[in-house]
Nucleic acid binder design. Sequence first.
DNA 1: TCGAGATAGATGCAAATGCATGTATCCTGA
DNA 2: TCAGGATACATGCATTTGCATCTATCTCGA
Lengths: 160, 160
Amino acid sequence: MTATERGGAHVPSVRETAEAWESLFRAQVAVMRRLQSDPAFRELGIKEYDVLFTLTQCPEGGLRLNELNDHVLLAQSSLSRLVERLERKGLVTRRSAPDDGRGTLIALTEAGWETQRRIGRAHVREIARLLGGALDGGELAELTQLTARLRDHVVEHHPL
Amino acid sequence: MTATERGGAHVPSVRETAEAWESLFRAQVAVMRRLQSDPAFRELGIKEYDVLFTLTQCPEGGLRLNELNDHVLLAQSSLSRLVERLERKGLVTRRSAPDDGRGTLIALTEAGWETQRRIGRAHVREIARLLGGALDGGELAELTQLTARLRDHVVEHHPL
DNA sequence: TCGAGATAGATGCAAATGCATGTATCCTGA
DNA sequence: TCAGGATACATGCATTTGCATCTATCTCGA
């Protein structure tokens, strides 16, 4: 068996790359389909939750709409309206960015933090329930590393 | 450094599991955002393409709607109408399943095969362009393995 | 300083989506 | 055999999404 045959440290072929993406994508679909049906997301859609979560992971002041948009699979206009809905529910505030009159700063309200924590706890439990037993700790760490590097590479080398 | 600290073959914590999912999901978002903007998907949306692709990967006769639905992140009704659109475009045919009067068999037309091949070629090139250089062959194979096992586990242990 | 182009976000509108439900068919146990 | 429930898919309808475009603001070079 050659290095190539066992998938050694060679430059991957187009086919190998496409297969890896396909596999990653299908795994995401399978997991996401199940996560979406979690009762935790009856109160708030998973995309709305994702925005709240992203806001918890960033400096206190909040995020610009375009920064938020990097984390979510939505068109700019769709995110704009999603945030508008969150504002109407009292979960986030929007204010004009102090240093750039065009920008909008989105920040969590107290209710937003509380809602994220509440849904987040159930969500994390559900993730563990679904994925538990699929991979051991080393494999899971490996997966985290590989996907993180994949993301970093794409963000770094292929701006939108 | 203990085995746990370096992520050895232990039973993963809830936190480690959630981190891995988060990382996988963000990588998927980053890659998908870029794939979606490929001009190859101006003619046909990526979800529509995905259905055509899935149909190429299965026995000649086609797939039932509910089987298709396992591969796609869409509600049953949305897929039903997506397939209806594909039929109107002449890319698939729908016929009643011979062994089950409730079912619908979806199959590619000749134009459907041709369209999938054409878009697929461009799509695979784009995948290689985006991911090329991110991971070497061994890492890519590892990623394929891990995500495939993740999917298999979820499909096996957590039916919808 | 000014004007052309770039950028951030909002909005009108058509298309796509999901939920709830409807219809037809299939299955199962009494 | 047949009634009750389950399953497969379709459909009405309100919501969400994306595209194209608009406005407001910023940036930069002449």
